[in-house]
Amino acid sequence: MKIKKITIFSGRNKQGEKESFEKIEILAGQKIGIVGPTGSGKSQLLYDIEKLSQGETKTLRKILINDNKVQKDLRTDPARKIIGYLTQHMNFMTDTTVQNFLEIHIMTRGRHRSEESTKELVEKIIDSANTITGEEISKNTNLLILSGGQSRALMVADLAYVSESPIILIDEIENAGIRIKEALDLLIKKGKIIFLVTHNPILALDTDKRLVMKKGAISNIIYTSVKERGIANYLSWINNYLLNVREEVRKGKKVEELRLICTPVGGEK
């Protein structure tokens, strides 16, 4: 199913008052931020979208895809599901190798064509995971001993290549140990729509627009400015720099020089 557009029709806030907009349209390839304090309704909005609700949830919001309602199996059957979800927690519980785990997931998703193609896909996922994290993942690593950064990187790459859901929901992904902006670029490359609950400025300022949540309602929509994107880029650079230094420390090296762009050249007298 080719997704061109998602439409959110307004519902009600926690007090039962109507949200202040009629509808919000989101086009393929867009990144949408969701911001607001705890209890403001961020997770509920993600839930409404994941459920592709038709007014049955407590917010009464309606979500349409390409101006139509969505059949039930496209919402639930993992092999056909159009929505992928990257949750806050990314622990693994299966005692197996990275390679075996990815192979099982490829089977589950109905994407196994031949042994060779699956093997190639597994390699591709691990390679791209390794572009996001500093600590290299090998295909024989046991899933259970992956670090937080490695797990996140692996799941992002898995979401990009195995799940292929055209709509992706991300709930407060942490940036510790991964190149967070590159991770999102990997996901969005394929014209996906991304909803992102985050207060991480690297991500929030790099969206197309941000939905500001208040008392259970979408209270404001901020269109990201060019300036904000510039700031996001710079913060991302700092994050990646931090990651590199972290790797130096991990490798047992000494870190005696700070190479931030903003340090004036020859600043020392």
Partner: peptide, 25 residues
């Protein structure tokens, strides 16, 4: 399910369907 990755949730779901064929999940 919120404690583990989506990939494992999907795998788990298909494992459940193998033993509880007629159940809705």
């Amino acid at each position: 399910g919120d404690l583990i990755s989506q990939a494992e949730r999907e795998i788990f779901r298909s494992e459940v369907l193998k033993v509880a064929r007629n159940a809705s999940i």
